[in-house]
């Protein structure tokens, strides 16, 4: 799994790629959410478009990010969840918690709503 971070306006876009299967690398994702808050950014868009495989470990770290960012007064939103990942959000009912988008511009704009 790889992590890429970039600023788009006042939103931190974190892109994950590869397999999100658990282990120490998930700590990096958790740390990326915390780092955003520590640097004064509480709006994060998580791009999952290049994630080829994910299970409950990935969902766990996403929920952790949601809690971290919500407490900081911001939000974590999801971009480009694949069909399989979207299915996991439905099974676990996390779809009721997260706003999901397939268009980056629309997603970025939504933080200003």
């Amino acid at each position: 799994m790889k992590i890429k971070e970039e600023m788009k306006g006042d939103v931190v876009v974190i892109g994950l790629s590869g397999k999100v299967i658990g282990g120490p690398e998930l700590v990096e994702v958790k740390d990326a959410f915390q780092k955003a808050v520590d640097q004064g950014h509480s709006k994060v868009l998580l791009d999952l478009g290049k994630v080829s495989w994910m299970d409950s470990s990935g969902l766990g770290v996403i929920v952790s990010g949601h809690t971290t960012l919500s407490r900081a007064g911001g939000a974590l939103k999801i971009l480009n969840a694949t069909k399989k990942i979207h299915e996991l959000f439905i099974i676990t009912k996390l779809i009721t918690i997260f706003d999901t988008y397939t268009d980056e511009q629309e997603a970025l704009k939504s933080f200003g709503d």
Binding site: S56, G60, V63, S64, L88, T92, I97
Partner: peptide
């Protein structure tokens, strides 16, 4: 909003 425990459900 638990960060774990979804494996069997999935």
């Amino acid at each position: 909003l638990s960060t774990r425990g979804r494996g069997i459900l999935i």
